[in-house]
Amino acid sequence: MSVSLFYLVAFLSIFFSLMVILTKNPIHSVLYLIVTFFTFTIHYILLNAQFLAIVNFIVYMGAIMVLFLFVLMLLNLDKDSEPMKSNFVKIAGLIAGLCLLITLIGSMKSLNISDPVILKDPDIGLVKNLGKVLFSEFLLPFEISSILLLTAMVGAVLIAKREPKTT
């Protein structure tokens, strides 16, 4: 039951992520992305990582994609206003995409296949256990990432702040 559910959800996430890049309308693209994130949430729940699931739900679906949609709604989506893509940009995009593909394949090859059957600690995804691990074993990376977020926030405030009038 669980395995077939996994395959169904996995198929759905791949299908919807393909739809993200295949649809012409950017709004539809964002909506497909939201559905993709929702399938990710289901994946997390299947992996018994409830906290990650709900955080993915809140942060990606509830906040970041709302902002994406918000910005896209304000854009003028007429076909005429789309900037012409020159050949140079197309070739550059092709090269970049191929590089990404090669990197991905290379990293996949060097991956060790982990033991799929036995999870060392099946309850690691629960809030209590995750919190204990984060605040003891991985305290330094956790705090560093929080500083990173703080820096980003300060930067955003700085950009948003109105320039003081010089006159």
Partner: peptide, 25 residues
């Protein structure tokens, strides 16, 4: 009785705006 109930409520609340946004757009 999920053990992230409060966060679930919070998540649902944050999803609530999609209906209005999509409908409005």
């Amino acid at each position: 009785d999920i053990n992230v109930g409060v966060l679930y409520i919070f998540g649902v609340v944050s999803l609530g705006v999609y209906g209005l946004m999509i409908g409005g757009w």
